[in-house]
Design a protein around this nucleic acid. Structure first.
Lengths: 218, 218
DNA sequence: CCATCTTTGTGCACGCGTTCACAAAGACAT
DNA sequence: ATGTCTTTGTGAACGCGTGCACAAAGATGG
């Protein structure tokens, strides 16, 4: 029986082995002392806990460049997601195949949702249409929404929304890029600009966005 | 002079006002007691600290659906980013306009980077090409990379990489979706499956991914 | 069957971020 | 000027996650 110890896994993942064991303990206790974890069973347990063993039908609304990119994205199928339908408001798009699947018109949104038992919707429309699409998805029974449109969606209680802002990641990179340049320049320029002293920075977070400010202007 | 108090901002952002003041204090101290913060100056200070006042030329490599979507994305310009060039390995793409800008061939990658002083690169290629593109970007002087390809890139010390996995957000939604369904079903099914008891969950994090496990299978 | 060795599961302590609470500071009215 | 009122800036306490360290558990060999 192939097994792994928490020590091996921790080393591979770059985390503390005690934390890893503690996390696993939340899933129940099924490691064997003196041996480790049964790999196959472990994978199954985690997969089940994460919902990877289920089939999640999703709809993608707004088949522009981004919507098409998402439809073609291979990573979904391997994680238990199935693109049930592609929906767009443009009548010219209707019937046109994208990622081997015909685009359907927004008029049929409610029907598509209910017939496929869809509970997760992806919004890749322009900002202006997002809230309206969101409202219709929710009304039709969708309870989780992944929003790529640059708008904050308002939804009723019980509906989860996650917003993906493609520029935020760039923002974070630029922030660090600036600091790289800043440290060299600070000496050379003899502090031409009044820069606040280096922050405490002795926080515990190890991630690359360790000390990004939490608030930024619109 | 238009001003805002930390209390107003905190309420609007949904955070604690003391934390907000403490964060601002790291940028230096420029609020006025009894009045609040000068809005215009505050915006400028934060913008400068985040690098929004600078112009960041970026290149996008891999002009498929996703690359095109990024090139057309409006949010970049308003955050100080300027798409300096679109690069693709397909000779058939060369010269073809995307987002009002001609696609250039990978052969000229190094020249484009150096001539435009690019320090941030976006990789939107298939997984197979990502590492190779990454190596060339780094060799040409890029020190920050935003990776949309489903691969872990290895880079030398001093280069920042951020990976965006479009399916991870879906994963998180599905995880919560499962728990929603689980809580109803748990009663009905009389615990047909051995499910661990509800976690402590009394952690400080308020975000929707409050208690996602940190480790997941490939 | 006992001794030893490995690895899990977890109580406990440490450290860091968050929040509270208040003194200091400035505005504004009298 | 002086007092009052508002809001900042920050020291101190709290709470939570993380990591240490070890007892318990099971495997393995003699």
């Amino acid at each position: 029986m192939p097994t792994v110890s928490s020590e091996e896994l921790a080393a591979a993942a770059g985390v503390n082995s005690a934390k890893l064991r503690k996390d696993f303990s939340y899933l129940g206790s099924y490691g064997t002392r003196g041996v480790g974890y049964d790999v196959e069973y472990l994978v199954y347990q985690i997969s089940r806990e994460l919902g990877l063993t289920q089939d999640w039908p999703v709809v993608i609304v707004g088949i522009g460049n981004l919507g098409a990119a998402l439809a073609n994205y291979g990573g979904f199928a391997s994680r238990g997601f199935r693109v049930a339908a592609l929906i767009d408001a443009d009548p010219a798009m209707a019937g046109k195949p994208v990622a081997g699947m015909p685009v359907q018109h927004t008029d049929d949104l409610e029907k598509i949702i209910s017939e496929n038992g869809v509970s997760i919707g992806v919004i890749a429309t322009p900002a202006g249409a997002a809230q309206q699409v969101c409202d219709r998805l929710v009304a039709a029974g969708v309870t989780s929404i992944l929003n790529f449109a640059p708008t904050v969606l308002s939804v009723p209680e019980g509906v989860d929304v996650r917003k993906v802002d493609l520029s935020i990641e760039l923002q974070i990179l630029a922030f660090h890029e600036q600091r790289k340049a800043g440290e060299e320049a600070a000496v050379a320029e003899a502090a031409a600009v009044v820069v606040p002293p280096v922050r405490p920075a002795a926080n515990g977070r190890k991630g690359p966005d360790g000390d990004m400010p939490a608030v930024m202007p619109a």
